[in-house]
Design a protein around this nucleic acid. Structure first.
Length: 128
RNA sequence: GCGGAUGGCUGGAUGACUGCGGCAGCAAUGUCGAGGAAAGUCCGGACUCCAAAAAGCACGGUGCCGGGUAACGCCCGGCGGGGGUAACCCCAGGGAAAGCGCCACAGAGAACAGACUACCUGAUUUCGAUCAGGAAAAGGUGAAACGGUGGGGUAAGAGCCCACCGCGCAAGCGGCAACGCAAGCGGCACGGCAAGCCCCACCGGGAGCAAUGCCAAAUAGGGACCUCGCGUCGCAAGACGGGGAUGCUUGAACCCCAGAUGGUCCGGGUUGGCAGCUAGAGGGCGUCUGGCAACAGGCGCCCCAGAUGAAUGGUCAUCCAUUUGUGGGCAACCACAAAGGACAGAAUCCGGCUUAUAGGCCAUCCGCGCAU
RNA sequence: GCGGGCGUUGUGUAAUGGUAAGACCUCAGAUUUCCAAUCUGAUGAUAGGGGUUCGAUUCCCCUCGCCCGCU
């Protein structure tokens, strides 16, 4: 199934908005029906929430069983979490939900700086 | 040195920056944080609930003997059978003279007796054969065919007789036992399958931490049908009576009894938090005692994660082995560069089994070769 | 996590322990001016590995894959 992990604590260079983590299945479903952008390493889904729904940036992580066994899934999730920790403070928009989806083999093995580049490109596409 | 057998260990190391979960703290911060299989869920337990977890039946499991253990289908030791030159390895390994069932095709005949071809004797004969009797060695079939070899014997033959081998029964002896050794007896009979039914012995009540208990929120604390039934004595406690059992029957204690009870069905709801939740038959090291061993016991020291969209990560440097390429060298090897670092991630806990696993290391033993 | 079930040609189904059957599909041929329909023929499977047995789809064990239930 899909997995996610609790808030990332105080982020370095955090902007004024807070970041929290998606835990409800309904939020994941809504995000997947909104804007999406695939890159070699990351599949990104993004959604601008309706007024009064929640505050700040929210982010979720998903690695289905297609990604591999438990070791591969956990590894992909950890790297996605690290990517979000670095990229979201500089590019995330207040009032949006983001869902990062792992891809088979690639998310766990791609060089890390390339993964970050993929994330930045996907963010631009989803916002634009 | 080469080849092999068995048992065991390890599962990259150090550092820097930056993150995550638990605990402590107002905070700064401190401290702890995956495995030998955490896996498969194949067994066994602990623990919780089910009216006791009791008896019988049913059902399921195990299956040489002895021991170990909380327990086991696990482990240790022994026995028997099979394989290997050997070290050593493998075996669901009780009962087929309790009973039932099955043994296709082929073959004369498939389980207990019988006789297709062929053999022998006699009679008949159209000289092809037919009939009566003897016999069970030879042929062919098959996974399996009624002991084997040699000799005697005979009309032909046959354990019909003899020798050796095999087989069965077995006094006695050894061993806790499985079992082993075996005088003697028997002309030989009793085929295989019980991972077919079954018999025997032993074991097992069922469900499972999403168990179970509590708190909060929410909803229609709703509707239909059926069953028991509207008790007696007593001020009361209680007694009598009735009801309540998870495959079936019995069933003490216990619970309920005029309930808005119990059962079935329909409809609604199905979220959040806390406890269970991690220190236990616990692990490691050292040492002593008993034991062939598994293991048991004593002492000392050290160590023990608890998440819940689920923590233990990311990046880099150096070293460590590995592979590839280039250069040098007869070679061992040296230098430089690059790549990738086995299987795999706790979810109530523990003991086993099974399966996956790069590379490396240690010990013991066997065979061959060489040297002494 | 815990508990349960299933696995046979490409698909959905059969098979007392004894040659794996039949249907649809695919291919080829026949029929037809051509197509469809029809007829004939062919290809093709017991999830994998061990064990019991003379002989396993069937009986036993291990592994793999798929499906279902739970508050």
């Amino acid at each position: 199934m899909t997995d996610l992990k609790p808030p990332g604590g105080p982020l370095t260079g955090t902007p004024a908005v807070s970041v929290c983590v998606l835990t409800k299945r309904a939020d994941f479903v809504r995000a997947s029906n909104a804007r999406r952008q695939g890159t070699p390493g990351i599949h990104l889904q993004g959604r601008k929430r309706a007024e009064g729904e929640a505050a700040g940036i929210r982010v979720g992580f998903t690695c289905s069983k297609k990604v591999g066994n438990a070791v591969a899934r956990n590894r992909a999730k950890r790297r996605l979490r690290e990517v979000a920790r670095i990229v979201l403070p500089e590019m995330g928009l207040d009032g949006w939900d983001y869902v990062l989806v792992g891809r088979k083999d690639i998310t766990a093995t791609l060089p890390f700086d390339q993964l970050i580049a993929d994330m930045r490109r996907a963010m631009k596409k989803v916002h634009g």
